[in-house]
């Protein structure tokens, strides 16, 4: 999975591309937790390039959301395809992090 990070002010936007599965979950977890440790406590995960997410990917979202919240920050996601949105919802993770249809909506949530 490709992980690209950009900064817009104090926001960190992470573009993920590929399958968020067992194989990719560990490197994604390491990178996201590094970012949180480095001070990225206002995070947007852009899921537009994610084909699907399995439970190992959901575990990463949970861990990162818990870490971000522990720092008083906020984690949002945006642009999931239909399958990714369905998995997030049926896992109850839409109660844990706000999920927006567009990147701009996610950015606006921090303003």
């Amino acid at each position: 999975m490709e992980i690209n990070t950009t900064r817009e002010g104090d926001l960190s936007i992470v573009d993920l591309e590929g399958k968020f599965d067992f194989a990719s979950s560990r490197p994604v977890e390491i990178r996201l937790l590094e970012l949180v440790e480095e001070g990225a406590h206002r995070l947007v995960l852009n899921l537009s390039g994610v084909q699907y997410i399995a439970s190992s990917g959901m575990r990463v979202l949970l861990k990162v959301a818990q870490q971000v919240q522990g720092h008083g920050g906020k984690l949002c996601a945006c642009c999931p395809n239909e399958t990714v949105a369905e998995v997030i919802e049926l896992s109850g993770f839409d109660r844990i992090l706000d999920v927006f249809e567009t990147r701009q909506d996610a950015l606006d949530a921090f303003s």
Binding site: R59, L62, Q66, Q69, V87, L90, S91, G92
Partner: peptide
């Protein structure tokens, strides 16, 4: 799993088969 549990109480066990 209890998919309605708050963030601090969420556990991941059983989520895969639930999905």
């Amino acid at each position: 799993p209890d998919t309605a549990a708050p963030l601090t109480e969420r556990e991941i066990g059983g989520l895969g088969i639930h999905i």
